[in-house]
Design a protein around this nucleic acid. Structure first.
Lengths: 138, 138
DNA sequence: TCAACAGATTAGAATCATTTTAAAGAAGAA
DNA sequence: TTCTTCTTTAAAATGATTCTAATCTGTTGA
């Protein structure tokens, strides 16, 4: 459990658990994503960050990896802007502030906001998820 | 006030009011959008619809027009899917169901849903708007 | 240990929605 | 009518994302 001695063991186990081969790229990206608290990243941002961390990963792999992590439930996709996708490492039930000026996402703690009345979904449908975006400006 | 005699007068006045020249294209699109109840359209959809109605408009103009209408407050943009924008003719305070299967948007009447606790925005920011998307499946 | 296979990565091309460009066309004022 | 300004348009450009086909790497079983 000593991360200075076995720095990759946690993300390694995580990847095994979800059935993704722990490759160099996935391990590196997983560390960037999951060992720095809750994060909201775009593909481009993560790509730049990987480069800065000396991790050589193609943009295609960044996209593959973000989609795979999202597919297995390690991340969530948040849609707030046309033409750009954000990925969130916090998969617990929560909502978001979106800073319109800086295009930054920020978690709203799960209990700081709630839906008053949940409306009845149309006949024959079920609610999959409720997303609340509070758009703010500086 | 007789729309069979002066079919364009309403949208004509609307365009004048917001300071947009009532051109053939804008008049035609405004009629499609505002004379058929509350609507949610993508640029492509509106383009197809215009063609079906024998209104010759380029896709660039569709985009220009939707953005202008949104800019002057005649419509609202709704972001629910990465890579596609929806425009809503209903500008009153309300939220949306999004059918994940069919990619259709549907209004939730303003009083059928509400935010319980509105969270305090981060220091130095103000709330611009709150968007709730209830994602549903068939 | 290592061969062999399935799965992963990659550069580059392709795609899709949207915006820009620059040229030609139409609306409004005088 | 004429001039000016705003619009429209086809076509090119852009930007994010996905696909393709070739190469590479983990994993497994002998």
């Amino acid at each position: 459990m000593d991360s200075t001695v076995r720095p990759y063991s946690q993300v390694y186990d995580t990847l095994r658990k979800v059935g993704l081969r722990p490759t160099r790229q996935r391990l590196g990206l997983a560390r960037l994503l999951f060992e720095n608290g809750d994060r909201h990243v775009t593909a481009e941002q993560l790509h730049a960050e990987a480069a800065a961390a000396n991790l050589r990963v193609s943009l295609a792999t960044i996209y593959n990896t973000l989609n795979q992590f999202t597919g297995v439930g390690l991340m969530r996709e948040v849609v707030v802007e046309p033409g750009r996708s954000y990925f969130d490492t916090n998969t617990t039930d929560h909502h978001h502030f979106f800073h319109e000026d800086t295009a930054q996402l920020q978690d709203i703690p799960g209990d700081a906001i709630s839906v008053g009345k949940v409306p009845e979904p149309p006949a024959g449908t079920r609610v999959e998820r409720v997303d609340i975006i509070v758009r703010i400006r500086g």
